[in-house]
Nucleic acid binder design. Structure first.
Lengths: 228, 228
DNA sequence: CAGTGGTCTAGACCACGCG
DNA sequence: GCGTGGTCTAGACCACTGT
């Protein structure tokens, strides 16, 4: 009682790991694969969606489906492996959840930074950083936003509290990261806190689920880290 | 140029947060909603899939779509909020990645535990724990597997290394958690290590992306936690 | 331009839940 | 049995890519 698209995905996965389709190869067009497997095109696309979520293939509109190089996974937090990070900044105001997270009054002036990290023409991460607006000039940044926050906050930043969830990307996020709207992403909401307990920055990281993972190390014999 | 199913999702989301559809309410049948919005049923189902990934609604086959109670999110790691945890155990052998992770020879005897945590008739987490086979009798367990590991390992467990990824559930996982196969999940691979550096247990946690989040707290002024 | 994926249609049939 | 969601079909049209 396995679904048809799962059967197709299983067979294609077998062909890929067996090397019948080598790394970097383009798969046959979806229409032809659909005919070969005797399924309709939406069903075959479901199968490819599964493989894409596993990071086995990448789709490029107008070009085709390609076998991905394995273990291209980036880890968060960790040394950024991006080749380039492009940053842009705009003025914004604290509204709704943003004001709550930063402990600021509604409408307070903010500066919003957008960091997009690349590597080998592959988008790695999309980060939005929100800090209270200051005159601080900001130049370079890490893909996770740490540099921006330490530079923007006048005082040292002590801890960051990260909430990691799995969801689908918004259309804007999918376009920025060049992933499908049905590819799961890791969404990380970071709240930066100073030693005296003030929240000084908020960041939203979006990492493609097919090429990123979050690593956390817990000491079990000591006390567990406190929850938010 | 927004996709049709995104427009429909936006409108339904608006109706839900506005309270037109109250918490616990059943939405109209998908066929009727499709007619109302002037879209086909697959398109409308795509819209509902988006809302389900956001945790706004829950689907039950044969019954309908229901508005979920918000902030039902469980956090990992953290105090388990499950009402019940059902555990079953079977014998297994270390094969492939399992042997590598545990540092055991291929074919070594293991005991596999499956923990399923519930709460209010809602599946919360599915955990597979693999430990070297011993005669240790194991009774109760936390949903994250910690209790099982500390009981099974003869020596104290010092740290756990967790790798968090976002992906789709397997059909078996989806059935166990009673979620759709297209609902993103947080998959956490835990490796338990003793103070002398031996890997003594391996666990795979699957948390529904629409009701779970991983929380990690990082101290920025001290040295970053070492990566694996 | 031709080929590719992105999205959508208007149905169909099956499995499940409940009365 | 009836209504529900789960899955699939066999197309269609558009947008994007590279020549």
């Amino acid at each position: 009682m396995t679904a048809r698209h799962e059967q197709v995905a299983d067979d294609l996965r077998r062909l890929i790991v067996a090397g019948t389709f080598a790394i970097g190869d383009r798969l046959p067009p979806e229409t032809r694969l659909a005919v070969q497997y005797g399924v309709s095109t939406p069903t075959l696309r479901e199968a490819l969606e599964v493989l894409r979520a596993e990071g086995l293939i990448a789709k490029y509109q107008g070009r085709g489906n390609f076998v991905r190089r394995p273990s291209e996974r980036l880890t968060y937090p960790g040394p950024p492996k991006a080749e380039r990070v492009t940053v842009s900044s705009t003025d914004a105001t604290a509204t709704g959840v943003l004001a709550v997270r930063l402990g600021l009054p509604e409408g307070a002036p903010l500066t919003a930074y957008v960091c997009l990290s690349h590597r080998d023409d592959s988008r790695q991460s999309l980060t939005h950083v929100y800090v209270p607006r200051t005159a601080a000039p900001l130049t370079v940044a890490s893909p996770w936003g740490d540099d921006l926050v330490t530079a923007a906050a006048g005082v040292p930043v002590a801890t960051s509290n990260d909430q990691v969830t799995a969801r689908f990307p918004t259309t804007a996020e999918a376009q920025s990261l060049r992933i499908g709207t049905r590819t799961p992403v890791l969404a990380i909401e970071r709240t930066f806190t100073t030693a005296d307990g003030r929240h000084v920055a908020y960041a939203l990281l979006v990492l493609p689920g097919d090429r990123a993972e979050v690593v956390l190390i817990t000491r079990l014999d000591t006390d567990q880290e406190a929850q938010q």
